[in-house]
Simulated scan of single mutants.
Amino acid sequence: MKRANLRERPGPGLGPFLVVSFVGAWLTMVPLWVGGWRRTSAAQETPPLAALCMMLMMLVPALTAFGLTARRRGAREAVRVLGLLRSTPWRHELRCVAAALTVPLGLTAAGLAVSTLAGWYEPAHLPGPGAVVSLVLSAVVSVPLYFGEELGWQGYMLPRLVQRGRMRGLLLGGAIWGAWHAPMTALGGSYPGHAVLLGIPVAVVTAMLLGTVIAAVRLATGSVWAAVAAHVSLNEFALPLTRHVSGTLVDPLLAGPLSIATWPATALAVAGVWLAYRRRGGGDGWVDGFGGEAGSGAAGSISP
């Protein structure tokens, strides 16, 4: 594959991307608002209509990113610059994906330890083989949906945000990610049974921390697929495993990867990212984050 200039910077388009992505997210939730559906308990099952709306919402960032890029560069070029084609050797991609899968699980484990000590969580047993197989199958089937988000956030938005400074761009990207979830959070998606005025701020802080870590994984590996793997691990493994291991009903606000109990571990991870960047010095955030030996291929493939 042709190697592009590492110092080629992404073009404009952040504003339109955010407007379309946010408006699209709210529009996909209209059927649920009109139907009066709301998740009021963690034990409540997600009906088919709600699941369909959430899946469509997850595809909005990718469709927006592809549409804006194709409008400027053409459809064939959009496939290349957004990372739809493999841009690094398979071994490198697999190592990145494997490492990314462990990050949310490690943060969740640390958070569950805090929740257990605080009396908010009761671990009871390990998940059986059947449960693990079910989770793996669900994760594999759901990969296109998470790619739908991360192609937009990490393939399109992040390259534009890091021009404002690496840590600033990472933190801002996480906050944007959290705010984008507001239509679903307001319906009790992440924190059922809690007031909207509590759920949305908690969701934004949680997403800012977790989103920063996921974006840092993307920068460190040079792989959009690593960010996809981290997101899959968060939603398809860390969240359900929290419920499977517990002997009682779990409040997502107090236990699990999206809980306030996980904030200290995630904040330490964010601080570690900041210290790592400080130790590397004040080099160019775009070249350092998307170029170099590990990410040179990715730099040419995701920089519209």
Rank of each mutant, 00 (worst) to 15 (best):
I260D: 02
R280F: 00
W263V: 15
A269T: 09
R280I: 01
S296G: 14
V245D: 03
E236F: 04
D288S: 11
P252R: 06
S233V: 10
P252V: 10
A226F: 06
R280L: 14
R279P: 00
G295Q: 01
T266S: 15
G272Q: 10
L254P: 04
P264I: 11
T242F: 02
L234N: 13
E236D: 04
H231G: 06
L253E: 00
A261E: 11
G291K: 01
V287L: 13
I260E: 01
V245R: 04
V250S: 03
V245F: 09
D251C: 04
P264A: 13
S259T: 06
T248N: 04
S259L: 05
P240I: 10
T242M: 09
R279L: 08
P240L: 15
A230Q: 03
F290C: 03
V224E: 00
G283K: 07
R280H: 10
R279D: 01
V287A: 14
L249N: 01
L234Y: 12
S246M: 08
A261W: 07
L234I: 08
T248V: 09
Y277M: 13
G295K: 01
A230K: 03
P252W: 03
G295T: 00
G285R: 09
S233G: 14
L258S: 11
V245Y: 02
S296R: 11
A255G: 13
H244C: 07
A267S: 15
A238I: 05
H231C: 06
P240S: 15
V228T: 08
V250W: 01
T248S: 12
E236L: 07
R280G: 15
A227L: 07
T262S: 15
A255I: 11
S246A: 14
Y277K: 12
A269L: 14
H231M: 01
A227W: 05
R279G: 01
L234E: 08
G283M: 12
A294S: 14
P264N: 06
L241W: 12
L234C: 14
V287Q: 06
